[in-house]
Write a protein that binds this DNA or RNA. Sequence first.
DNA 1: GGAACGGTCTAATCTAGGTTAAGTTCCGAG
DNA 2: CTCGGAACTTAACCTAGATTAGACCGTTCC
Lengths: 247, 247
Amino acid sequence: MPMVRKFERRAGLAADDREALLALPYQARSLPAGAHLVRDGDRPQACALLLSGFAFRHKITGEGGRQVIALHVPGDFLDLQNSLLEVSDHNVQTLTEAEIAFIARDAIRELALARPAIGVAMWIDTLVDSSIFREWVVNVGRRDAYTRVCHILCEFSLRLEEVGLAENHRYELPMTQEQLADALGLTPVHVNRVLRQLGEDGLIVRTKRVILIQDWDRMRDAGDFTDRYLHYGSPLRLSSADPRAAR
Amino acid sequence: MPMVRKFERRAGLAADDREALLALPYQARSLPAGAHLVRDGDRPQACALLLSGFAFRHKITGEGGRQVIALHVPGDFLDLQNSLLEVSDHNVQTLTEAEIAFIARDAIRELALARPAIGVAMWIDTLVDSSIFREWVVNVGRRDAYTRVCHILCEFSLRLEEVGLAENHRYELPMTQEQLADALGLTPVHVNRVLRQLGEDGLIVRTKRVILIQDWDRMRDAGDFTDRYLHYGSPLRLSSADPRAAR
DNA sequence: GGAACGGTCTAATCTAGGTTAAGTTCCGAG
DNA sequence: CTCGGAACTTAACCTAGATTAGACCGTTCC
């Protein structure tokens, strides 16, 4: 399970915590593209872990505009926050066909209380999500369209590489240009213009939906991108067996 | 301590957890407006709790643009995420003169591990922060300037009321128009235009920096605002003594 | 008292990105 | 094989908000 690996890297779980995490009862289901997992206003009873495929979170404004808030790749928890907050404040939907493990809210909460190291690991997971939200606020609020598109393509490249779905900055973009536009606060027309421009500028090559970033350094600069906010590396050392926690 | 009250409302702490939370060692300091608490790239060793005054978080883009990511009111933890993530991905600064309690990173982590109910309460706190980030992505990404300004003024009204700093939708805005612009992804010039317009439309009255929302319902509609994302109300029942956690 | 300064306000002009409207390409279904 | 629909693409035009440039405060500090 990639999720367990991610937790271990980030929070350094002890063996028994690892067991407990894997012992979580879940129900796996396969869902088609576009399936709704949580709707704004719902009181969800289960929390979803993405096993394969892609999903996204979004909100709809009063005027009917849609803002995509997050993209999720395999191994991501889709809505850990719904285990602790009573009513959902946004929608979660599959982007592609996806396999999803549903874990009961209560099971998550109980595990977090019974095994604090796991609680902290899940907490960290949501903190990294937060960090990405913050970067998206910046992307959408203060970068021009060209930079913005470059930035998100860089982010996707790293995140997909992390789960083995990209190699040498080459990956299949799991979303339509319209969805991409909704993630960037732009119109599909303009996203298309920028993508064409990126091709002409020799930054990317597109064939269907696969993106190849030709020159990572130039792309990173063009996208004002650093990976700091993704919080890879530098794992914490925390576990129930940690001596510092022994009191 | 307003922070403890907030936690109790949200996570329903037991008496001994309450004690432990209050027993956290801290160092209180008074800081002038504009003081830097954390800088992007830092490895902070302490976590700050805002006792009085205001603070904000922001990021600077490569082109020098600034995006304000969050406003914090008394009782807010400013950077709980820094207790668990190694290097900070953004800046935190006081907005006004402020009293701040610094709590050692390790103390927070140890408490979260030793008293899972408190860990969960802190987790919830960061989840609510997240929810606000998400709303800000939407605000900045998909709402026009007019709606955007109304929305943030509504948010501030409720959040300030929550900590006793607003009454009848009347409060002192703790930031300059330039800072407001940076929070909204707009220019100060345009923020000024919109504020004037809001006055002309009879939605607000401004005298110096105090804002009075004259007609809350109209303002809420104009700002496409709902308070769902602030996650007030509906407390969870969780504590170390919770029978469900006893295993 | 006045100089310097940070904040507010305003008008004039400009442009990045939105809007509208088609055409095109690609598939899957029948 | 061809029909229908969704995604992509492009061009022409338009507008919300940016940019630029000052004027006009208060207030603090000589």
